[in-house]
Write a protein that binds this DNA or RNA. Sequence first.
RNA 1: GCCGCUGUGGUGGAAUUGGCAGACGCGCGGGACUCAAAAUCCCGUGUUGGUGACAACGUGUGGGUUCGACUCCCACCAGCGGCACCA
Length: 812
Amino acid sequence: MDMKEVEQKWRTKWDEIGASKFHKENIDKKHYVLEMFSYPSGAKLHLGHWFNYGPTDSYARFKKMQGYEVFQPMGFDAFGLPAENYAIKTGVHPWDSTEKNIATMEGQLKRMDAMFDWSNEIKTCTPEYYKWTQWLFIQLYKHKLAYRKEALVNWCPSCETVLANEQVVDNKCERCHTPVIRQNMTQWFLKITDYADELLDGLDTIDWPEKTKLMQKNWIGRSYGAEADFVVDNAEKDVIRVYTTRCDTIFGVNYVVLAPEHPLVKKITTPDRMADVEAYIEYASKASDIDRLSTTREKTGCFTGAYAIAPLSGRRIPVYTADYVLFSYGTGAVMAVTAHDERDYEFAKVHDLPITQVIRAKEGETVLPYLDDGVLMNSGEFDGLYGEEARDAIASALEREGKGHKKTNYRLRDWSVSRQRYWGAPIPMIHCPKCGTNPVPEKDLPVTLPYDVEFKPTGKSPLASHEGYMNCKCPVCGGDAKRDPDTLDTFVCSSWYYLRYPDANNDKQPWDIDYINKMLPVDTYVGGAEHACMHLLYARFITKALRDMGYVNFDEPFKRLVHQGVILGTDGMRMSKSRGNVISPDEYVQQYGADAFRLYLMFCFSYTEGGPWSETGIKSIAKFMDRIEALVRKVNDMPVEDKAYATGSAEKELDYARNYAIKNLTRDLEAFSFNTAVARLMEYVNALQKYDGNENKNVPFLKDCISDLIKLIAPCTPAFSEELWEITGHNTSVFEERYPLVNEKALVKDEVEYAVQVNSKIKAKVMIAKELDNAAIQEYVCQQEEIKPFLVGKSVKKCIIVPGRLVNLIVG
RNA sequence: GCCGCUGUGGUGGAAUUGGCAGACGCGCGGGACUCAAAAUCCCGUGUUGGUGACAACGUGUGGGUUCGACUCCCACCAGCGGCACCA
């Protein structure tokens, strides 16, 4: 079969009949299949796209054949850093390069023969889309979920620009190799932390990979502890508030540590220590959070000269600043318990600080640092209390004295969404010297991203230099005002796109609420595991926030989630241009056709694991399809005579093979276990060929089995199967057919093979009739010639029977 | 470093979730067809020992639980994904 021609033929036909269209009248049977949309940075579709979209489309087609009304849209996550960097390097405007890339990728996606409903396509960089991204931001602002605060950014002093983490290599600017510093900048934040508890608890309600749920759980990082106040021994009596999960150790506090960015550091530092402290802050600004949290890194720090009074014990202890404390977590200050915390213990050794034991093991020796729960000592009235009981008592005491209280804390931080870049959705906010900061009125949306902008780094956001963009009228007083010069993080665009797809052409509102409530949640969402903690968490947060605002009525955006694995280069390394190990799918598609290529991707990798690319075997997949075609044509040409055909054991065997295939394909496709699904297809084809070798064939039965074969493989090789369906005399699409249903009766065997073990070693395989009970099985097995020798002079002490599988005789 | 995952023949990968390890392919070996080759078809193929029936060993390493462990537990090694401005 000339697959290129066949694929083109069916592509045209599918377009004519609107085969990929979603029919709203069948919404009660909807199944929303979504693949993570493409990022058009490279000019072309890569292997990863094929691996994500090809097999998932087969899943979508499988659902369609099960009678679901499938909605499978596609679009482009088109804003982002790479297009801007490309523009800075080459001078090609991000609009132009992005449009061109999208056009190329659309063409390639269409050749994939997936059932994408292109009438609902989305491109996040179009005003029609980002108008609603801006609308979303304003709703969040109005509901107090967007606010501004200072936050650290990577700053290259030489390029005078903010750098993405990706642009920082070894703490240096990737462009000019100047050491990068962390600098404070006022930024917009979204209050994802308001939803921390619900984001945790909601994990129990969704069908996601356990590992992804676990990663999100750890990312949110809920911990139960207490805040406690340490009063600085200075004129102002400044208060250092610390967060601790171990308030039971509070009598063992030997010093207090402030993060170098903590505003109190400079305030309380004594004049004689100021030079050292400033030098230390400078030093700390050069390290990344990952470096700072490394447990193997040397614990550095600097004494501020100040002392504070510990609550409850009243002890006077020194105040340090050290970069192993992060300003962004907890209160940005910790109490250091040198005897019961590893980092503090290490720090105390280096800085020659005392170590005060306040906990001992319940039994056995106590080795410092002792980290587990234990019995309190040297803790005044609390001596003798243990673990949680001690923490409760101490937290209550803190509260009584007005020096602290219990506190639940999260590792999760609010989501920083301001970007000092050009290629993103403009932040729809206006800064007025008189009225402060206010949102753009919704009737004035979108705030259009101007084309004629100097996007090369100048020390400010690119939009800040565009007078025509920046100058505007205050929506409150009508006076002269300025726009916010920043754009939104692209994760904001992708945090709600699944809501836009079903109603993508609505120009009155982001979506029709009634309609979207019927179309969502997404039934099956497929994309890479690298998004576990960011995109997937942001999307959940936005859904919950919109629900609370009344724009949707469901709690979770993605009912079921599947991650495809990563296909690596032939060298086992991640594909990248710099490594030169990038495999292009195009040549394979050219040579073998999209169907064979898709089938190969399904068969030769574990879908959720991926693995190194190898083209060995792609030929055999093409051959497998040839075998099917030959078989289908041969059986199709067999005349049906007017006679009674055989219905003996050969027919029973083939019917078993057919139903075995139906049962397993149905299960495996549902489970995204595509490689085993294809293996079962191969077994079925082998069984058909074996039966075809018989002299006396039941031709009508064989034709029926072939018909099922075409339906079974149809989701995997769509054009090929349509062609076979036509060859076998049909003038309708095979995707209008129902996926074959299993006949369980055909799978019942009179006898089952059991493995027989003696003392857990396999000694024989025995056919055992289905109706035997356990006692009869044991008796039957013991009579077998292969087993008898093992029983001579011994008795069976125990007999373990696993129904349908195994008998284990324990003898002695 | 921290969080999460993975490790099975020469090779890609299976294994009903604690029950016959290696399904289905690739590769390799042998054979049929052919003047020959390609294509196709048939047989074999974890390792070691044995002519052989068979035996021993075998799922990254070391230990443990169990009648029974690729699967569960503990410790370690290697690789991969993420670590909040790549998306």
